[in-house]
Amino acid sequence: MYAQFFGNFLLSRDIITREQLLSAMEKKATRRIKLGTLAMHAGYMSANEVEHIKILQTHQDRKFGELAIESGILTKEQVDELLKAQVPNFLLLGEVLVDEGIIDNYQLETLVNEYESESDLYALEYDEDPREKIETMLKQYMQAADNNINEYELLYNVLLFNNLVRFIGEDFTPIYSTVCTEYPKNFCITQKITGPFDITLYIDMPESVCIAFASRYVGEDFEQFDEYVQASIEDFANLHNGLYCVNLSNTKNVELQLMPPEIVSDPVLMFEHQAFLMPIIFPFGSVNFIFELNDKNI
């Protein structure tokens, strides 16, 4: 968790391209992390020491942990602890980038340190309310993207991130959102919320990505782009927007009306009000969320 922004952080620093990120995320989904990367993250080994053990491994056919213990760099207890530890998602991403030769271990060490201190990750990991953490990180993310959104719109995005984690999986990276005036769509559904302000959500993705998204959401292995797959995307929007209406009614005393979700038939979306495009990259492809906002001067 909280790793969703690491890919975005790397993009914003021009360390990687969007294509490299997508490719790394695909590879990350099917691999296990190396002990050296974990030890470096835990502060037990420097990048230098990891490289040293890797060189030793080219001479001796032995496990990384064994050699690190023998070299006096790690203790057996530390190795056991690392093997049992839960792997931070962003470390796996970093490791794929190292293996691809896009960055080296020295850069990874520096980048992870910078990422963690910028997002205050150490302090966040032990905090008790994940919603607050995501809110903090999203605020930073939105400010960095220079998008002026109000309190209600921020809550909308925080809930969306939580729902993606809960219902689809936490292995995603959001790309900085951009203002959007028109958009050529793939398969796209839309749902509108009206009230003191309006939010119209569009979820757009290619058919192959729909199948993977729907499979995760419903927990079934869909194989073709059929009406159940299409309904799954609408259902996700409906669930998210429904929860948003409940949250605002309970916490802000704001009553909103939800319209039924619809499949968009126009080939190009044209927006009447300010709209933001936020691509979310999963290992199975990019899911594009567009929010059209009419704040009606609230």
Binding site: N241, G242, L243, C245, V246, S249, N250, E255, L258
Partner: peptide, 8 residues
């Protein structure tokens, strides 16, 4: 059966 379970 609804996704909008507000009190209202």
């Amino acid at each position: 059966v609804s996704s909008v379970g507000t009190q209202a």
